[in-house]
């Protein structure tokens, strides 16, 4: 009896501390794994970006030489600008498609929404390399699209710009990243009820006005996440430009990849390029979300 009450008492007193200890035990494996294999590697990449290469050796010192080289080289600047341009264009195409799809799922086909979402999710996980390669078959000079257009008599000669071009890169990236934009945008629309829309409509809101003053502001967190996802991942991709892009669509990802796995590799320079592109993308995301918020307020 006494043992029993003592036991219960201990449980009351030690409860909080013991729960906290148990939480720490459960968190520690993943936290340690993240620190060792994610935190430390990202930091080593950052440190490496301040080292430099002499001959074939990496010299450990602290110089801004790589960053200076990137800033002063017209070639890197052009590729960086192109990467940001292609990334922005991809995001600017992907997000409105995802927004429209989410809107239709939420308000026009609510009963099929789960099914459509399932289809979108499955496509997200079905073959990254495979889907990029498939676009080469579709957009190629003698590919499906060209042969279909020729068969229909719409064109006499194959359209050259369909493949190995910026067009091909954007089409492919949009297809790859669309699911990643739909998921956050659709889930942020789940908070908007039909009532919001109907009340606004009753108050005399016209359709476009409704989108600008009700829908976009309420779905803004999802739109922001979707935009940031697509932009960042598009700007960081190197497989798409190297499989379907042309000589005019080399992106910074290709240059970074070559610094690590190419001939004439330069790891410190590659590391610096990686941080430059990530910083540029984040800065632009911040500026753009700020702008969207201002424009959509009224």
């Amino acid at each position: 009896m006494t043992a029993g009450t003592a036991h219960i008492g201990m449980r009351e007193y030690g409860h909080d501390a013991r729960e906290a200890a148990r939480a720490a035990v459960m968190l520690s494996p993943a936290v340690l794994f993240y620190v060792i294999f994610f935190g430390v590697p990202m930091l080593s990449l950052l440190v490496l970006s301040f080292w430099h290469v002499e001959g074939f050796d990496i010299v450990a010192d602290f110089t801004g030489a790589n960053y200076q080289k990137i800033a002063s080289s017209g070639l890197y600047r052009d590729i960086l600008l192109r990467t940001i341009g292609l990334g922005l264009l991809t995001a600017a195409i992907t997000v409105p498609i995802a927004f429209t799809l989410s809107y239709l799922m939420r308000f026009v086909f609510p009963h099929k929404a789960q099914f459509i979402l399932q289809l979108v999710l499955v496509s997200l996980f079905s073959g990254y390399l495979v889907r990029i390669y498939a676009w080469r078959t579709i957009l190629g000079k003698q590919g499906l699209l060209n042969s279909a257009l020729q068969w229909l008599g719409a064109i006499d000669r194959p359209l050259e710009y369909l493949i190995y071009s910026n067009f091909a890169v954007i089409v492919t990236l949009t297809g790859l990243l669309l699911p990643l934009a739909v998921l956050p945008i659709y889930s942020s629309m789940a908070n908007i009820s039909r009532d919001h829309i109907e009340i606004a409509a009753d108050l005399g809101s016209r359709r476009l006005h409704l989108v600008r003053t009700v829908l976009i502001p309420m779905a803004l967190p999802g739109i922001r996440t979707g935009f940031a996802f697509t932009f960042l991942l598009a700007a960081g991709d190197f497989v798409t430009p190297s499989l379907v892009g042309g000589s005019q669509s080399i992106m910074i990802g290709n240059v970074i990849a070559d610094q690590f796995r190419g001939t004439g590799a330069n790891w410190p320079l590659g590391a610096a390029l990686a941080f430059v592109v990530m910083a540029a993308v984040m800065l632009i995301v911040i500026v753009i979300t700020h702008l969207i918020r201002r424009v959509t307020r009224w």
């Binding site: 990449l45 990802g253 970074i256 690590f260 790891w267 590391a271 990686a274």
Partner: peptide
């Protein structure tokens, strides 16, 4: 980006 994770781990 996976590219950045990949090269960071390689380093």
């Amino acid at each position: 980006p996976l590219l950045v994770i990949g090269v960071a781990l390689a380093v």
